[in-house]
């Protein structure tokens, strides 16, 4: 018994160490954003919110933030519509076509993002589709579709078949059944999947770098800023982004977790 508990303490300590390793890179920039910087070295004696003031007047970052929001919201809406349609279709029967559709949807999730990005880049050039925010939105939709589709399909399959049958027996049309029977049951899955998709889109860098024209999203803007050199407002931006992401994680957990724990 004593040896067992000593082993447990070791495991707990090791787990704590891994947590520190995972959260360190997140908290260090946040902490240093509140202190003055001198030649790239943080002066821990001099607290300041100057970085946040500089950030708020940084035109490039504000534009990038707006672009990120546009792309994220559009990609979420597109992927929810497409994911819902695909999940309903897949769930409505069995065929080779359905299996193929599912395979195609999963492809960008299995392949490294660099391949998805390059494929789209080449394709857009060949069909003379100018690179813009639209191409970024398409790229992000392709990337998050698998996740949205999978989440909706799992929820759809967990619903009892008799719900739909009862609805049809009571004379509801296909659309009415979808609107009044399926949709209410799928709402929380849609919100959860949507938030998760938005979080993924918010942080997507590799595909965006490849398919964007001159427009920057936050990650690509950050990428450019960090490659050029160090500016103090990066840390402030990091803190803002992480606050937003944390909020999204909490939201996603709120809508996806309770059902999962009662479901299984």
């Amino acid at each position: 018994m004593t040896r067992d508990s000593r082993g447990n303490w070791f495991l707990a300590g090791f787990t704590l160490l891994v947590f520190i390793l995972l959260y360190g890179p997140i908290f260090v920039p946040i902490a240093s954003s509140f202190f003055a910087l001198k030649q790239g070295v943080v002066n821990w004696q001099q607290p300041t919110t100057l970085a946040y003031v500089t950030l708020a007047s940084n035109e490039g970052i504000l534009v990038a933030l707006r672009n990120t929001m546009i792309v994220g919201v559009s990609a979420v809406v597109c992927s929810l519509i497409l994911g819902m349609a695909s999940a309903l279709y897949f769930n409505s029967g069995r065929s080779k076509g359905r299996a193929l559709l599912q395979f195609i949807i999963f492809l960008p999730f299995l392949m490294p993002p660099i391949i998805t990005g390059l494929a789209l880049l080449i394709y857009f050039r060949e069909i003379d589709f100018d690179r813009s925010l639209v191409t970024v939105i398409i790229g992000h939709t392709v990337f998050v579709l698998a996740l949205v589709y999978r989440t909706l399909l799992v929820r759809l399959q967990s619903l009892s078949r008799s719900l739909v049958e009862a609805s049809y027996d009571l004379g509801a049309s296909g659309f009415q059944t979808f609107r009044y029977v399926l949709l209410p049951n799928l709402t929380s899955a849609m919100i959860g999947a949507g938030v998760l998709a938005f979080a993924l889109s918010f942080d997507e860098t590799m595909i965006t770098l490849l398919v964007t024209g001159t427009d920057n999203t936050l990650p690509t803007r950050l990428w450019a800023m960090m490659r050029l050199g160090f500016t103090p407002d990066i840390n402030a931006l990091v803190a803002v982004i992480l606050a937003l992401t944390t909020l999204m994680c909490l939201l996603a957990a709120r809508y996806l977790m309770p059902r999962e724990s009662t479901g299984t």
Partner: peptide, 18 residues
Amino acid sequence: MLMLVPLLMSYVIKIYAI
């Protein structure tokens, strides 16, 4: 969940911080 949350945190920022 806490173990997975950092996955949703900005990739570029984490690289930069590390």
